[in-house]
Amino acid sequence: MPDNIRVLSVLVEDGPNTLSKVSGVIRRRGFHVRSISVGPSQEPGRSRLTLQVDHGHAEADQVRKQLERLVEVVEVEDLTGHDVHSRELIVAKVATSEVAGLVQRGARVLDTGPEGTTVEFAGEGKDVGDFVDELIRHGIVDVARSGPVVMRRTA
């Protein structure tokens, strides 16, 4: 991963303005979002964002500090360079029913029909990238891919 990308896990209060405040601060400080995943956290009324942010010309810790200034942001953990589990999800439609090679890599078939087959795969960013290369050989009709969700390893 390039040096100027930070990986952050951000716990936020749910609210109509939260996402625009987070993205607004990233934009106006000259940062750039590479990926974003959002979902509910275990705490009611709060969501967890996983962000990959390019910090541009600013110092690396500015991303965390600027996010911490937002009242909507409860907690920011900078996971860059830490030992983490990082998972991305991909759902893809290929134009064939011959998907044994994909299944062998760990893909799950979601449906299959005369127009092709829909598969899902989850893994680290690099594995998902390799999986996409494999998909290309099968003829991609459509693909949807999440950004990574990241968690510190327990050990």
Binding site: A58, E59, Q62, K65, Q66, E68, R69
Partner: peptide, 11 residues
């Protein structure tokens, strides 16, 4: 008092 000022311009 604002931690984000640390290193924003001068480290």
């Amino acid at each position: 008092i604002d931690g984000s000022e640390m290193g924003k311009n001068v480290r």
